[in-house]
Deep mutational scan, measured.
Amino acid sequence: MFYPNSPQTSPQLTQIPYGQQYAMMQRQIQQPYHPFATTEPQARLYPYHYQGPIQQEQGGFITQQSTAASPQYVQMRVTPVDQSIMSGYPNQTANGSSSSSFNYNIHPQQQQQQQQQQQQLRHHAMPVGSVPLQDDRYRKQLIVNYLAPDVTSTDLHELFSRFGELDGARIIYDKQTNMSKGYGFVYFCHAEDAKEAVERMSGYEFHGKWLKVGYSTNPLNIVPSNSSPYVHAGSRGAAG
Rank of each mutant, 00 (worst) to 15 (best):
L121N: 04
A197I: 01
V198P: 03
M179R: 13
A148L: 01
R137Y: 02
Q8V: 10
S180N: 03
G214C: 10
P32K: 03
Q109L: 14
L133V: 04
G182E: 00
I54A: 06
Q119I: 12
A148E: 01
S66T: 09
Q30F: 14
Q30H: 02
A194T: 03
Q21I: 08
G60E: 09
R27A: 12
R200H: 12
A169D: 02
P229N: 11
S202P: 09
A148G: 06
V213D: 00
Q55S: 09
K175W: 12
N5F: 14
Q15C: 08
Q56E: 10
E205R: 02
Q112W: 15
E158T: 10
T14F: 15
G182A: 11
Y46A: 07
V223A: 09
Y204S: 05
P219Y: 00
S228V: 07
R170H: 04
Q111N: 12
P41K: 09
P7M: 10
D135G: 04
I62K: 06
P219A: 00
P53M: 08
Q30I: 09
P149A: 05
S225C: 10
D155F: 00
D82Y: 15
K140G: 01
R44M: 15
Q116N: 07
Q110R: 12
G96Y: 08
Q72W: 15
F163C: 03
Q65L: 14
A194H: 02
A239I: 14
Y3H: 07
H107T: 07
I62V: 14
K140E: 07
D82N: 12
G59D: 04
V81M: 13
K175G: 04
I54T: 05
I62E: 01
P53N: 11
P4A: 10
V131F: 10
R170I: 00
P47W: 15
Q115A: 08
Q26M: 07
A239C: 01
V128Q: 11
Q83E: 06
V128I: 10
V151C: 04
N103I: 14
R170C: 00
Q116P: 11
G164M: 01
A94I: 10
Q75M: 15
Q26H: 10
P7N: 13
S202M: 09
Q51A: 08
S70T: 14
Q75K: 13
V223W: 02
W210V: 02
Q31F: 10
Q176P: 09
T93F: 12
Q26V: 14
M86S: 03
Q51N: 13
S70V: 12
S87C: 15
K195M: 09
H49F: 15
D167R: 01
D82S: 08
Y146T: 00
L159C: 03
R139N: 02
N178G: 13
P127R: 12
D174R: 01
G129A: 11
Q75Y: 15
N103H: 05
Y22T: 11
L147E: 07
S6R: 10
Y89G: 10
G52H: 11
F102H: 05
Y104W: 11
R27V: 15
H207T: 01
A233I: 08
D136C: 02
A125Y: 11
V151P: 07
Q42D: 09
G59V: 13
Q141V: 01
S98L: 10
T154R: 06
V198T: 05
A233Y: 11
M201Y: 04
S10M: 13
P224E: 04
I54H: 08
E192Q: 05
S10Q: 10
Y73P: 05
I172Q: 00
E199C: 07
Y89L: 06
H124E: 02
E57I: 12
L211N: 01
P35R: 05
H123S: 07
R162H: 10
Q118N: 09
Q56S: 13
H232F: 08
D193T: 03
I62Q: 04
G59W: 15
Y22H: 12
I171F: 03
